[in-house]
Amino acid sequence: MELVVFVFAAAMILVGGIGVVLRSHPVHAALSLILTLFGVAVIFVSQEAHFLAAVQVIVYAGAIVVLFLFVIMLLGVDRTEDIKTEPFKVQRPLAIIVGLGVTGLVTAAVITSRDVVATRGAGIIEPAMTDPDSNIRQLSRSVFGDYVVAFEVTSVLLVVAVVGTVLLTRKVKPASKESQ
């Protein structure tokens, strides 16, 4: 059963990821991104991270991709990009070599260290069979207990990001220059 879930989710993730890279239309790339994000959410559920799966669907597939689509429509760049022609001939083969190299190195590191991660620790993640709320309870205890300072700093980060973006995208009116 876990194998079936893994195979389907991996297919969603890989098809979506390749679609983001290869589709020349930005809207199609954004829709492929949604497919990938849902696949990641499925794997989160199968890995006992229920709260993060919900956040993944709501924040990523909901808010962030909608923001992408909104900007695509707002800017009117929703036309097919010419990805056949390449200004630098050497760039595309080099990029593929770099990508394969990164993937190969990380895969080799994972496979050589699989005995290290094979030892299960003390285990504070209880399976959800016994207690459906255990994941959310543990995560909230961790976020609001051990990492409460980081959580508060995160709120400052969000406020700074929102105010900074409003200032960045504001249109400067000519009248405001005269008043200065």
């Binding site: 890989l14 390749i18 983001v20 794997i43 990029a95 990508g99 990164v102 993937t103 990380v106």
Partner: peptide
């Protein structure tokens, strides 16, 4: 799987 996805993003 995560490594492959990271490679796709890098490319």
């Amino acid at each position: 799987l995560a490594a492959v996805l990271f490679g796709i993003g890098t490319v």
